[in-house]
Design a protein around this nucleic acid. Sequence first.
DNA 1: TAAACACAATGAAAATCCTGATAGTAGAAG
DNA 2: CTTCTACTATCAGGATTTTCATTGTGTTTA
Lengths: 223, 223
Amino acid sequence: MKILIVEDEYQLLESMKAYFAEAGTICETASNYAMASEKIALYDYDCILLDLGLPDGEGLDLVRKIRSLKKKDGILIISARHSLDDKLNGLDLGADDYLVKPFHLSELKARVTAIVRRKNFDGTNEILFNELTVDLSSMKTAVNKIPVVLTKKEYDLLIYFLSNKGKVVSKNAMAEHLWGDEMDIADDFDFIYTHVKNLRKKLVEAGALDYLKSVYGIGYKFG
Amino acid sequence: MKILIVEDEYQLLESMKAYFAEAGTICETASNYAMASEKIALYDYDCILLDLGLPDGEGLDLVRKIRSLKKKDGILIISARHSLDDKLNGLDLGADDYLVKPFHLSELKARVTAIVRRKNFDGTNEILFNELTVDLSSMKTAVNKIPVVLTKKEYDLLIYFLSNKGKVVSKNAMAEHLWGDEMDIADDFDFIYTHVKNLRKKLVEAGALDYLKSVYGIGYKFG
DNA sequence: TAAACACAATGAAAATCCTGATAGTAGAAG
DNA sequence: CTTCTACTATCAGGATTTTCATTGTGTTTA
């Protein structure tokens, strides 16, 4: 999972980042309107955590912008303002949820998880695909009800494939989502092959069909 | 693969037929209860797509009939009715899945594929053509019982030719079937020649006759 | 019929992908 | 702190897929 945190208070930004990173989420950050705007235009995120009180621009404009770009990133608005107006405005413009400062990091995470879950999988916390089952809340995977133990990367990979079922995903996009922008796009993606191989092997050995087709020169297509 | 489509709406019937035929599936059709009943009694299908709203009989009776004949055809019920009763009834009587109108053809196809896959899970599903044998469940090919090792594309190609035996297949259709949406608009089919060549070579070297005729300006004809 | 053209087949080479072995790393356990 | 273990990354090989250049074959036209 990959999120963008837009927040100008340095301390808070760092805590949020640390909290999510701890849980294995790829975090990118922006501390002002301009940076946020740029990153949003360039990348896709599972969820954008957006503080409305930015120094150089109106946060709600970002919401408008994201939706006008037809992007499907989840949006969680964070604000110190208690005004009902802002909240309604945000939701009207297409934000998915709203959180008022101060808040507990655990609540923040719960809401982000909820948004991502809703966005990708219709609110159920289980993904079903033929003989394959993935329980998002417990992060357990199974083939025909028989548990399969996946590593973090394998699990992330599987989730990514499942949430892009039927679509061709490029290795660039995969790297982008699973490793964030620490990784140079021009690098080669040998390590992806290995994770794909391991994931495939575990699923097939557990009795699943191999739904993953490689698309020569581009990436993969699942389902 | 061979399916029977039972549907009284002419337009829908034709679209479904076209969609499956394009993918190399053999399609037979019936537009009323009587025709369906007759075909079902006479032939075996991998899957029967059954619309419940027939003019001259109750579709669920067909399900009952198929099962009482101990036939193992897969059954996918299609209906405009949302009622849970119908769904449960159908599944109780032995249907394999249920689809409510309106639906996307892609979903229909996915469900049919799933049914057929389930049905053939441990049964050996073999295609036989003279000295040629293809085991679909294990994806193994043989000439006169002697195994021939094919690559994925070669295998796909062979299956496509076999399921369109006797018919002329265009290179466009081949590309569509073997590469689908993974490939952008293809203006160049050079790679098909290569795969055809490799497949031919392997089969002929294994002792099979060359059943593949090229059709100038269009594509190929197998058998 | 011969020439001109379009399509098909071929072999070789390049690009990409898969696999197994191996080494580095981080966290858990002792 | 050290060892153990599981995970991730890297690498080299071989396999697969695609591209390319060339040659061969069928079709049309003069």
